[in-house]
Simulated scan of single mutants.
Amino acid sequence: MSSAKSFNRTVFAAAHVVARDERTVDWDATLAFRHHLWSHGLGVAEAMDTAQRGMGLDWPAAAELIRRSAAEKAGRICAGVGTDHLTGEAGLGDVLDAYLHQLDVVLEAGAQPVLMCSRRLAATARGPEDYEEVVGTVLDRVSEPVILHWLGTAFDPALEGYWGAADVPRATRNFLEIIRSRPDKVDGVKVSLLDAGHEIGLRRALPPGVRCYTGDDFHYPDLIAGDEQGHSDALLGIFDPIAPVAARALAKLAEGDTDGFHSLLAPTVALSRHLFSAPTYHYKTGVVFLAWLAGHQEDFRLLGGLESARSAEHLAEAKRLAEIAGVVEPELAERRWRQWLASR
């Protein structure tokens, strides 16, 4: 078993929720899975996209999830701050108030805030000055550094034009301006654009002391290993199903064994690329499927019935790749796979 102290990277796994039925979270199993992640030295990124935030997990359930997880924390925990409880027409002031409301919940729970992208802000903002007004004001209100999250359109098409520009280089400049004006308020940025070249350029442009948490589930080994000019830390959905392997790899990296690090993670990349294949936002189905195959929960079920979002062929390939990567026990996985096929 690895400990967080054995790593030379700051790492979080964005954790899924275990559903009892289409509308109800199985709290015991959900919290047990967080302890599984902590036991391997990984931090827990709570109530993020992987937890079906905005795709089955509404704000009241997300707030309860944050409170429960933070109360049991046995390692690092950060949690998503968004605006997803807003209803009806909303202006910039409403978006700001929504962010501040959720920020208070996360801070009161004792988790580090992750300022998530807001569909409402994307729909309301007229340009970069509106992002500065809303995000900048939130940053001005915090006393401890937060994580800023840039989620790309592959994960949520409603976020087109985020940071005030559809052009990614221009959006990046706008994003950096907000960070550079308040570097003491930003612990790091989580970048989920699935563009390794862009991430490397961004992390080199960040102010000193501001981390880049890779959210790139396609290129994470190279980004975490880094180069002569730096490296990415990690906040990844793929670390949910591959936690034990990721922990062993990160321990190798901390020991200076870069080859061992890559050797362990290399087989997980094909699995991750498969799980996150288009439409990328349905990757949660594969993540939960693997948790079920690995014995972390009793049923293969997602909130909103999204276990049906991927085909049997897609899941069969996920099982095959997971066995190659060593993240499921083949005999148990085969038994559960046959059980699922027989129930269809």
Rank of each mutant, 00 (worst) to 15 (best):
L121A: 01
C117L: 13
I179S: 02
D94L: 10
R141A: 15
A111G: 12
V114Y: 04
D184N: 11
S143T: 15
R141M: 10
R126M: 09
D94I: 10
L159R: 12
L148H: 01
G136Y: 12
W163M: 14
R180A: 12
V146R: 00
E160Q: 13
V105D: 02
L139T: 06
R182N: 05
V105R: 05
V134G: 01
L148Y: 10
G93T: 10
E133Q: 14
A109R: 04
D97L: 08
A154T: 09
L176A: 07
T124S: 12
A111P: 03
L176D: 02
R120G: 01
D104G: 14
C117I: 03
F155S: 08
D140V: 11
K185C: 05
R120D: 03
D97R: 13
A158V: 13
R126Q: 14
A165H: 09
R170A: 15
T172C: 13
F155W: 12
E160Y: 14
P128L: 09
L139I: 11
G93Q: 08
D94A: 14
F175P: 00
A111S: 14
L148K: 02
L176W: 13
G136W: 07
Q112L: 13
L151E: 05
A125L: 07
Q112A: 12
C117P: 03
L96S: 08
V105W: 05
R182S: 08
V146C: 13
T153C: 09
S118L: 12
A158M: 10
D187I: 06
G93H: 07
R120Y: 12
Y162E: 11
A111D: 03
A123N: 09
G127M: 07
A122R: 10
G164L: 04
L100N: 07
R173W: 06
A123D: 11
E144G: 09
E177L: 12
G152E: 02
L159S: 10
L100G: 02
I178G: 00
G161T: 11
L176Y: 02
L103Y: 03
S118R: 04
V142I: 15
M116D: 00
A171D: 01
V189C: 05
I178F: 08
P113W: 06
H149W: 14
L100C: 15
D187T: 04
G164M: 03
Y131N: 01
N174K: 12
D94M: 06
R126Y: 06
R180T: 09
D187C: 11
S181F: 03
V146G: 00
D130W: 10
E108I: 06
V142K: 00
E177F: 00
G136S: 04
D187F: 04
G164H: 00
